[in-house]
Amino acid sequence: MANPPHESSRPTGHEVDLLGVWFRRVVQSDPSAFESLFRATRESLVRYAFQITGDEAAAADMVQEAFLRFWQRRREHDPSGSVKALLFRTVRNLALNSVRDGKRRAQLLAEGYEPPARATPDPDETLAGQELAGRIRGWMEELPDRQREALTLSRFQGLSHEEIAEVMGVAPRTVNNHLVRALRTLRDRIEAHREGSSVQGAG
């Protein structure tokens, strides 16, 4: 399976404010704002689509299609809303439709889900830290789909509970429940791993 696109960092408050400014200008048919919005969000959207489809080329095409629809319907959007939630929801629907159509189902079943991961390891990480990071990625793969998706959108894409709820089509309380359960599972796995390592070290 191809490596996922490089994971972008979570957006800062200033970047989030810029997204809102660009969104309002796009609604007013400003092509330069549309280009700025595209450049600022494309990488994270492609990565998100890749996590669903497992196909980087298809993921890039879906993001292009999402932005095309976004521009074509720009006057219909509420500029006071979250443009991130709008774009992630559009990409999610396109990606899920692709999977439902069976275009990638066989390969997904064979290869499995690719969790968020760093493109290159942190040189300051110790060997033990690298091992734990790898285990956490594996444990994320084992989470129920909805918990994993909520955790990815929250921790890796920086969306708020309200934005995630809009993307996933559920209530914010449901998002919170997914996150609480996912984090509890990971915390329990980490604690069990550390206890096991301590026992081995003592032996």
Rank of each mutant, 00 (worst) to 15 (best):
A182N: 02
D61Y: 00
A49K: 02
V63A: 00
M168N: 02
G201D: 13
T120I: 15
A60W: 02
H77C: 08
L18G: 02
A60V: 02
H77M: 09
D61M: 00
V180I: 10
A59Y: 03
L94G: 04
E166T: 13
D17Y: 05
S8A: 15
W139A: 06
V170D: 06
R105Q: 11
G112P: 07
A171Y: 11
N97R: 13
D122H: 10
L151F: 08
D55A: 08
P79F: 06
R194H: 08
Q130M: 05
V180Y: 09
E56Q: 11
A119W: 12
T174R: 03
R73H: 03
D61P: 00
S80L: 05
D55Y: 05
Q130C: 01
G201M: 14
L132F: 10
L127I: 15
G102E: 04
R39K: 09
E191S: 11
A192Y: 02
T185D: 07
S98P: 11
A117L: 12
T90Q: 10
G81S: 14
A106Y: 09
M140E: 14
T120V: 15
S32P: 03
R89H: 08
G134R: 04
R118I: 10
R146Q: 12
M1R: 11
Q130E: 04
H161T: 07
A49H: 04
V83H: 03
R100F: 11
T12G: 05
P4G: 08
R74H: 05
R105C: 09
G134H: 03
A49D: 05
L153V: 05
S29M: 14
A49S: 06
G158M: 01
V63Y: 01
F70C: 01
S32R: 08
G169Y: 03
G81A: 14
F34R: 15
A58R: 13
R42N: 04
A57R: 14
S98R: 15
Q107M: 10
A117K: 11
G169W: 03
V99M: 07
R47H: 00
P123W: 08
E111D: 13
V46D: 02
A85L: 08
V16K: 10
E35C: 06
D78E: 01
T90I: 12
E7G: 06
E111A: 10
V46L: 02
T120W: 14
V170E: 09
P123I: 07
R100W: 08
E76D: 09
P172V: 00
D78M: 00
F88V: 03
V167I: 02
L179F: 02
F38S: 09
Q107P: 05
Q157D: 12
R25F: 03
